[in-house]
Amino acid sequence: MSDFSSLVAHQGSKCSDEEWDEYVHMGNVRDNETPSEWMDRILSRLIYFKENDLLPIGGKHLTHARRLFRYSNGTTYAPANGFAICHKCNQLVYIGKKVGGYNHGGILKHWITSCSVYVHVSFEEVKRLKQKPKSQRSADDIYVLHEYELWMKNAVRKIEHAREIGKKIRAVNIISQKWLEYMYRPEGMTAKQLALHYQLLWTVREEMRQVNNA
């Protein structure tokens, strides 16, 4: 088979016939195998295909999980079951089953809201598109800008979440220090000092309650 014929037969993939045979069966989920077990079984080989540019044109971004059905007449059928492996973050994602032959919305939602490494377009390209008058923006331009805006919101949300976690950790450390200072009643306190001591204890408990409820 010529190089051109091989590319056509392998849907643009540069893999050998043996590798192609392995790839086309890679998406099949075995009987009694969960999607997570399926991913664990094939992920190392999938990464090998990705890193060596052996994936077909239509499989550059994700690999669908498929449930293989065998019929008595010898034919087989392997529809996608709604799960896929994202090639950008190597995570198992539920993207939903196809509706009318289309289910790219599920993986797009993952890329925009959850994927840790997804950036569809460069900042320079976004800047260029934003500088275009709205009346001159194409449908593709509007789609790219909307997608980038959603991705940015997700990135900002992750940063804010990390900051909130940092605040809680710092608050817990401060409370722990206060608790160690005031958890035991020092000897020789006057009535006024004792009242202040228990007031501080109450303040510490309130801070702990607020952190736990945050």
Rank of each mutant, 00 (worst) to 15 (best):
S5Y: 05
K14V: 09
D17G: 03
D17L: 03
E18T: 06
E18P: 00
Y23E: 02
G27Y: 07
V29Y: 02
V29F: 03
R30Q: 13
D31Q: 13
T34P: 06
S36H: 08
D40Q: 15
I42D: 07
L43A: 11
L46F: 10
F49G: 04
G58I: 00
K60D: 00
L62A: 01
R67G: 04
G74W: 07
T75Y: 10
Y77F: 13
Y77M: 11
A80E: 07
N81G: 03
I85M: 04
L92Q: 05
Y94A: 14
I95C: 07
G101Y: 01
Y102N: 10
N103H: 03
G106E: 03
I107M: 05
S114R: 04
V117L: 13
V117E: 13
V119T: 14
S122P: 09
E124P: 07
E124D: 10
L129E: 02
K130S: 06
S135T: 11
A139N: 10
I142A: 00
Y143A: 11
L145I: 04
E147K: 02
M152Y: 03
K153Y: 11
A155Q: 15
I165V: 13
I165D: 08
K167H: 02
V172Y: 10
N173L: 14
K178C: 12
W179V: 11
L180F: 02
Y182E: 02
R185L: 14
R185C: 08
G188D: 07
G188C: 08
G188V: 01
L194C: 12
A195D: 11
L196S: 15
L200V: 07
T203S: 14
M208Y: 14
R209D: 12
